[in-house]
Amino acid sequence: MKRGKGMKFVGDSRVPINNRKPNIPKDYSEYPGKTEAFYPDFLLKEWMVGAVFLIGFLCLVVVEPPPLERIADPTDTSYIPMPDWYFLFLYQLLKYSFASGPYNILGAFIIPGLAFTALLLAPFLDRGPKRRPLDRPFATGFMLLAICAIFYLTWEAAGHHDWEAAKKQGMIREVVEVDKEDPAYKILEANTCLSCHGGNLEGGSGPPLAGTKLSVDEIKDIAKNGKGSMPPGIFQGTDEELQQIAEFIKSIEK
């Protein structure tokens, strides 16, 4: 290869070659030992590490499909929000009484702001020439403290979150349009059934009623006496109406 020597250009206006910086690799005599050429020897090793990493990563991708909840519904205000896991420590901080409400500015801005500014300016806060962690106890100590705080807050946030309920509230539901002109539907509406079980009985904070496997009598029993977190006595209508809605619910196929 000629490496660009002897180039002749028409109308050459470039800086002449003798003014260019010589292309000499960095002197690594300050780090004596078994140095290795980056290209191609070390690069190949890096690629092998990358390949092993990629295999592990793809195993994770194949085993755990990415989650997708039901389409955003701005009218559903009962949903309990949750940020992605790496924001949980900031989210948890905002739950403490000393960092929320009137002190929101402390939890949302001052504490994280101080921590992140200190991180950004670390080279100017820790200026000594010493590099070993034990030789700079303040830098090491504050960083260990921050790591402990992050882990603790994340742990607390994850522990207080009801993962089962979160899974249920986000599930993709198959919505089958029900006949909203049916008199039985009006009865359901009047007895506030729909506010928990959804306008198409597809479920909400309560379980879906569409496609239930229960018998008419069981539906009547639950409507009157409740079940789980549903208190008894929500249904206020007559026995005739009760029969009507039970048959209506039974008739809705999934």
Partner: peptide, 30 residues
């Protein structure tokens, strides 16, 4: 490569990126 290098002098470009030694203390092989 030579055809392009003759016109654009690209060798110093990738040499700047790739031509350096990796010191022992960062090399997991050692």
């Amino acid at each position: 490569y030579d055809w392009i290098d003759e016109r654009l002098d690209i060798t110093p470009l990738w040499r700047d990126v790739a031509d350096h030694e990796v010191p022992e203390h960062v090399n997991p092989a050692h």
